[in-house]
Design a binder for these strands. Structure first.
Lengths: 209, 209, 209, 209
DNA sequence: TATGAATGAGTGTTCATTCAT
DNA sequence: AATGAATGAACACTCATTCAT
């Protein structure tokens, strides 16, 4: 009665079709019939693999984040320098977004969209991703290259926001003036310099309440 | 025949109700009847002031952005120092978000959500907001305090993303560990340092393609 | 509390506006607001003179039929010859239709449309009009010029149908090939000859069951 | 994706139900839900077979006219005499109306009702029906039995009006005094005599403008 | 497993009518 | 008498989901 869901060829076809359709038209403007048509499958078939329409979106999120996270983690292991890691992370995120524009759009826009998903569905996967940034900063702080007077939680989210928004800009930009790589480097440098431990500590002396 | 829409007391009541309802349940999960009930108005009354449901969302966006932009612009005039301006901007954005959490959520989430709005409706208002950041950086570059090797367009968007994402975190964070002010200062410092013209220019020597 | 309805200037304005609007768009596609606009009157004002939308249509019918009937009756008195009367009647009907195309269309189309009106509202006025035709035939039969083997009821209705349908054709016909008068004469001749008492009685010998 | 519409059993059920409902309550007073209930089908099912409510009415018209036209044409082939043909036509029309009272009412009343249908939808089918009458008269004129001084266009419409109005009377008449056949014969005789070529030509000498 | 016709609950929108001014 | 903003019942249509084949 239960189908070996995730491995099935049809499951993959539906996931891919849904990602494409959601990215193009948005979750609420996408009909299940649209997805079925795109996947070249009958409407009813979708319900053999997914509980309902919401479940498709959540599955896309879960699966993609797993891939994203493992890819990023694996690559980051190649470096020990926090500054280098940060640059690597930014580049990786942009690359992932570029290679999977549909997925990126869905993650970025559709999921944030509705409290329905962000509240009902636990955001552990998203937090795990933020955690990666958090750890890089922490390492930098430990090694004495990053400023200690910074709240990890808030800052990692800010960095994520910057990278992600830039990625969106990058996707939507028709004529690219810069390579993705140079974009990543620019942003990385800003953050690396910004996070740096100031020798005199003067600039950031402002006491945190 | 025509009602003095924008000034009418009912128009305001509906806008406020809609903002609240959209923020709480998301645009697509909000029924027009919900908004009417929240505004203590008959369903049909809404259509005396708005063309349709979409029009309500767009009106919220237009009005709020106008207020945001003019507030920010006016306040920024009080300073001449780009670094100070940047900090001021970040603080202002957070303050606006804190004071208008419903509006902020709607702007941040619901509007980005669907290409339907971002494509059909011209994004001039959003670009005007980005332009503010852009100008601050440009002034800093002119005055020789900010690095010239930075693409304004991409970077201003990145900064916006960081600030906005942080604001979202700030809104959703139940127990605030820091004051909004200190949060703003932290992020401002990161960017101010990050954007600084490096005396040796060494760090950012990486050639932009 | 009661307004001297029928005499009021506003009442007339509304009736005329409604006739025009109904003729143009049909009863169900006409909004009360359309009529109010055409009459240059506030929506609510209409309800000072008419019970509801249906009442407007019925009032148009009643009033117009009164005018039609009295006009026709008066003119027919000028002749004593049934054949001449028939021709006169047909010409009059066409003339009335031509001079009051809006009224004619409303009577012809909108009223027949819905059992709602033809059943709920008593059709005495319509019967009175048919009665005129009926009487002409009867006179012809009495005078021995029209065939007696004809059912008055059915035939008068058939004649009405022919005249009315021709009128519709005439109204809708953009380029008139014939004068209204010649059209009337043609049809009149057909009926006059058709109704004639056949000297030999042969043609119509067919026994009526 | 596409359902074999016209042949489907459900399509027929809906058409029949709609015809009945429209005839009983009129198009605008009929709810789609009424039709669905009458057809013993879910509301949504209707939209699998018809584009919208209007489409149902138009489909009834198209189909019925096809049947009417082909039935009449086929039967008329059995005769060569124009006078006989005319009588046959009238009888057939009455028979069709009697056998399909709902269809007849819908065709007669609902369709004429609104310019919406008669304008948007091309009236070729209706013209084809009128054409049948037109041809009969023309044949009669060619054979020298019908008067040539008659406008085909106008006259065929007048005949149609007479027959159709009589049919309506016949339908609504509770107590039938005559058989349908004798009614048809009466009207046929009137027209046959009326159209006859007058040996002396005197009666119709009136010059057509 | 797969299909896709059928379902029917759900909702944006219209518009005749009312009533406070 | 006149207004026209406000009302809210009514309804066409959509689409996620089911289930007989």
């Amino acid at each position: 009665m239960e189908i070996a869901k995730n491995t099935s060829e049809k499951y993959q076809k539906i996931i891919e079709a849904a990602t494409k359709v959601f990215a193009k038209k948005g979750f609420y403007n996408s009909k299940v019939a649209d997805i079925a048509a795109e996947a070249d499958v009958a409407d009813g078939t979708i319900y053999l693999y997914f509980k309902n329409k919401d479940d498709i979106l959540i599955s896309i999120f879960e699966h993609s984040m797993d891939v994203f996270i493992s890819t990023v983690k694996k690559t980051l292991e190649t470096s020990l320098d926090p500054a280098e890691k940060l640059e690597l992370f930014i580049k990786l995120h942009l690359e992932l977004v570029e290679k999977n524009p549909y997925v990126a759009q869905v993650l970025q826009i559709e999921l944030r969209q509705s409290s329905k998903f962000m509240k009902e569905y636990d955001v552990r996967k998203f937090k795990a991703y933020l955690e990666i940034i958090s750890e890089i900063i922490q390492q930098g702080q430990s090694k004495g290259v990053f400023n200690n007077n910074l709240d990890l939680h808030v800052l990692s989210r800010a960095i994520f926001g910057a990278v992600d928004e830039m990625a969106l800009e990058w996707i939507l930009l028709k004529k690219k003036k810069y390579t993705l790589e140079s974009c990543a480097k620019q942003l990385a440098n800003v953050f690396i310099n910004g996070l740096k431990k100031c020798s005199e500590g003067e600039t950031v002396k402002t006491k945190i309440a």
